[in-house]
Nucleic acid binder design. Structure first.
Lengths: 342, 342
DNA sequence: CTGTTAGCGCCTTCAC
DNA sequence: GTGAAGGCGCTAACAG
């Protein structure tokens, strides 16, 4: 690599001082510069392919124009079709505002405090955390220190900044749909064992939704998977072997739903004829499964966009109307539900 | 946020000079320090929660301990189950070696040279590019400048550093499998229209594999999708409406394969009874689709690991045995193929 | 073993 | 409009 070009090089090429270069390039209003000088500087910079050294700039300005994006558990990456969409949203907004994204994947059992060093080393101006664990103490600490952090998920801290979904109405609609079709024994395969606020909420709304019809979900009508299709498969087999009378299953997410379908098939039950299945997320692939998956749509890209916007507004000290954003969701009827077999 | 703690604070708390602090914390061998002094410094640093300012360190040392990860087209993120796995591999290795990952998503039509500014601003020490376009001139330029760049994919530059897969044997096995089952009219739905080396290779091997059996693939037995299941769906409908005699389809990847299955279903053809389908990638979900997908396994996590390792070795000037790594793939027989309907 | 001294490249007053 | 000067926090010689 050739020697790097510095503001000094630009200055001498443009026949001005480094001060002027800096002034021009940072569009300072402090001084009035002739358009002609500006032009010369821009031109010289372009010709030299000059780009300010980011480290030097960070050092003197005290910020990094970088946000950290923490994926709470990288192990789910291969399974959860949700994360990439979120990532797309975040990445898009950040680019728009000239921020960079530093990606940090946490593994279970990453000792101590995984956020501390990122924050302390001042590599980032703020943080977005995907899928935080409910009440994660490290996150709560950052919130209380007023560090700019936004959650795609929730730790249930009153002062958290977060972007989540309202799932009650759509879950009720899904339940209504099943009940209307004639289902009375409805089970559930969650995507995790409940360290997440989302898991708890989904169960809550499922229960409430059924209660409206005078139905309930016995504790052992519920199984827990781990984000993966495989876990959905085996959870379903356990569930249906224990309770063959179940005729419909609400899955924790679409990936798990795929496993539910295959688990049912393994027991000789076809979807939707012998079992109705409803997913959650509406991943792009859901509509093209066979049968097309009935599910609850959640806009992950929008969640990413929202989180990034929220964070950037904080970083710029712009007014924030609602620190805890709730995005709508939507029941989507497709082909994976039918009346229970007689 | 409280005032940041500097090396100066650590020094005074430990009762030593800043030099000593730096020496201790950077494990310099240049000077011999008493273990007792070391201890005092470590202790003070720990008590203060000291973490060196990364910008200052970058500035003086000239490197960033950060690698850039470029996703050539963020729009595919929601569709391609492959990227997250790769990401996991990359992220894991980087953490192991103490590197950070700066994620940059490119959109089609990101003007000019999207790599330049990242490189010039010295935010990163090296680069990993996912899915580069064949012969991408910007990438070739970086390679020729000897900038440390590693591809998960290929631009077919003789001096590129890259990690890819050998797909010939496994593709041939897949073909053999279909032929053995009795298929003679085999079509293909690719995952992109051929800007990628991988697409071209897969077609190449498919052709060669069939040629071994005296069969060929007419040009219009091939359709092109765009990574998504939806594209696979419609491509398949076009293909099968044009050539109903086709009894087997090789899909460009598993996601497309899902669409192939649903496209066939839309025409009243069930898999595997009325159409055999073979995927590519063996995503974690493939084994749990219904029917379980016969496919070609590719270890994306391993590709990520390989790319990250290669890059880090380059950055540390360690010897590199093979700059162009080829990982094996493997034909996996499951339930989506059967003899053609009589 | 320690303190002093120089920068790394850039931004920002402040006089001129 | 410009040049000089200080400093962001750290590292790495270099003499002590």
């Amino acid at each position: 690599m050739a020697r790097r070009v510095t503001s000094h090089d630009v200055a001498s090429r443009a026949g001005v001082s480094r001060t002027t270069v800096s002034l021009v390039l940072n569009k300072s209003e402090a001084v009035v510069l002739s358009t002609e000088t500006r032009e010369r500087v821009f031109q010289a910079a372009a010709e030299l392919g000059y780009s300010p050294n980011s480290a030097a700039r960070m050092l003197v300005r005290g910020d990094t124009e970088t946000i950290g994006l923490i994926i709470s558990d990288v192990a789910i990456l291969p399974h959860d079709g949700f994360v990439p969409m979120l990532l797309q949203g975040v990445s898009q907004v950040n680019k728009e505002y000239g921020y960079h994204v530093l990606l940090e994947g946490l593994s279970t059992g990453d000792g101590a405090n995984p956020y501390e060093s990122l924050v302390k080393s001042r590599r980032i101006d703020g943080l977005i955390v995907l899928n935080p664990k409910d009440r994660d103490p490290h996150i709560e600490a950052l919130i209380e220190r007023k560090f700019p952090i936004v959650l795609a998920g929730s730790v249930r801290h009153p002062e958290e900044y977060s972007v989540n979904f309202t799932t009650r109405e759509s879950t009720w609609e899904a339940v209504d749909h099943l009940v209307r079709l004639g289902h009375r024994h409805i089970g559930s395969v969650q995507f995790s064992s409940g360290d997440f606020v989302a898991t708890e909420n989904r169960l809550l709304h499922l229960r409430a939704g059924l209660a409206r019809h005078g139905l309930s979900v016995p504790e052992d009508f519920i199984e827990y998977g781990d984000f993966s299709a495989m876990s959905g498969h085996f959870a379903t087999r356990r569930l249906l072997e224990r309770h063959p009378e179940i005729t419909a299953i609400m899955a924790g997410n679409d990936t798990v739903a795929v496993g539910v379908i295959s688990g049912a098939a393994a027991l000789g039950r076809a979807v939707p004829r012998d079992l109705s299945v409803i997913g959650f997320d509406d991943l792009p692939v859901a509509a093209w499964l066979t049968p097309a998956l009935t599910t609850i749509r959640v806009d992950a890209v929008e969640q990413g966009i929202g989180a990034a916007r929220l964070l950037i507004r904080r970083l710029r000290n712009e007014p924030i109307h609602s620190p805890q954003i709730l995005l709508p969701t939507q029941f989507v009827e497709r082909d994976s539900c039918a009346p229970p077999a007689p």
